[in-house]
Design a protein around this nucleic acid. Structure first.
Lengths: 232, 232
DNA sequence: TTGCTTAGTGTAAAAATTACACCTTATATT
DNA sequence: AATATAAGGTGTAATTTTTACACTAAGCAA
């Protein structure tokens, strides 16, 4: 049997959009590039995929190298391959996104030289990014905004225990619109995927709200899925 | 400025799921392979992407080479890159789908040697396909089934003029369930994207039904989109 | 005690979805 | 011409889902 035709080989990469929610703001992870082209520009965490790894594991490895974050499950959403997206030739990139809980993951340490640093950037302050990463980001953001309207996937962004008001704020930030408090609660509780705890919010100077937890088992029942982020 | 790091190069391909609707059946285009591996097996139309073309244009070119069909707009839906999907090494494939009108496109002539022939295969008779193409097909089919439930995208499959019953049959075949005639019509007409013609079905041995046309302009208004298949 | 701030709650109207059955019309058959 | 056949075409009531909307309760701070 012949070998694969090597002359077709193309350069390809993965790029990751990692969402976080902190201080009431939606943020994403960016790296400051330390390589030409676009040296010094902000970019999505991403790099070249090796020949010997699957795309998924490449995404996980590269995210770790860029930021020090480990074991983040990401969902693929689109593959970009326009001729002009890289100044030195056609580079195909497979884009992933994930939502993560920021608690204890705020300190980012790149384990590589191609990223000078990694930062949490509020979505509302996003600068122009290297390559076509701004476009990739817009497409990914649209995707989760769309997805969240028919599937409650946002729990990954909150601390383990959260109040309904926190959850509502998160939705409002992602959907970019105000929601009605009573209707939001009614709907959310109707999903029956939250577990009400015997515990209250602490350290607030007003009436403390009940805390809730996301209940994976109930979620799986309702949506016929194991996890918030679905495997292929 | 340095060049792109060539040692990362990967082999990659596109594969296409082309849906057609004929004789009340949903069909897809398959080719019979004329190359190792999987010589003689059925496979999705697909081949290697050149270094100098975008993925989209590669998809269009390759579909033409496999089948003789030209100018089909396809929508990308997923990229597969598991290590074991090709026996000779990691091959990444970007998968696309499209729905096309079968009228006058039933004769397929491959313009290449890697496909022995192209055929319209009823979805219900699908054989096991080469590589992981069966899995790719299942994922693509699920995608359109899902999409059609919230966006009327199936008109591309019908002849230009069609009856509501034909449209309903198509929906039933894709969704794999019976629909209520009155409710289906009510909903379809409520979308306000069909144009009722002053013309009736011909050559039937029973009462002829009114013919309708898909109205692109109205569709664009309602869904804020130019076409049935959406550009990125 | 009072004031401040957020928590928490219900109901009515409107809209969308579902369930359901019969008469009409064109053709083919006798 | 009459009849049989087969699909076309239509409306309404019940149910469910979604929306709009405002006040009292609780906890903390001064």
């Amino acid at each position: 049997m012949e070998n694969l035709p090597q002359h077709f080989d193309s350069v390809f990469t993965v790029d990751c959009i990692i969402f976080g929610f902190d201080e009431g703001e939606l943020k994403i992870l960016l790296i400051e590039r330390n390589e030409e082209p676009f040296n010094g520009w902000f970019a999505l965490p991403g790099y070249f995929v090796e020949k010997t790894e699957s795309i998924e594991s490449a995404a996980e490895r590269i995210l770790y190298e860029c930021t020090g974050l480990k074991g983040i499950y990401m969902e693929q959403f689109y593959t970009f391959g326009a001729l002009e997206r890289h100044p030195q030739g056609r580079v195909i990139t497979v884009a992933y996104y994930a939502m993560i809980r920021l608690t204890n993951q705020k300190d980012l340490k790149p384990v590589t030289t191609f990223a000078r640093q990694a930062v949490w950037m509020p979505v509302k302050d996003m600068p122009e990014l290297a390559f076509d990463h701004s476009r990739i980001f817009r497409k990914g953001f649209e995707k989760i905004r769309n997805k969240i309207s028919y599937q409650p996937i946002a729990f990954e962004l909150l601390p383990e225990k959260f109040t309904l008001t926190q959850l509502q704020h998160l939705y409002e930030v992602i959907l970019n619109k105000k929601l009605d408090k009573r209707n939001f609660r009614k709907k959310m509780l109707a999903y029956d995927i939250l577990k009400e705890l015997d515990e209250k919010q602490k350290g607030v100077s007003y009436r403390a709200a009940k805390l809730y937890k996301f209940d994976k088992r109930k979620y799986a029942k309702h949506f016929n899925k194991e996890l918030t982020f679905t495997k292929e």
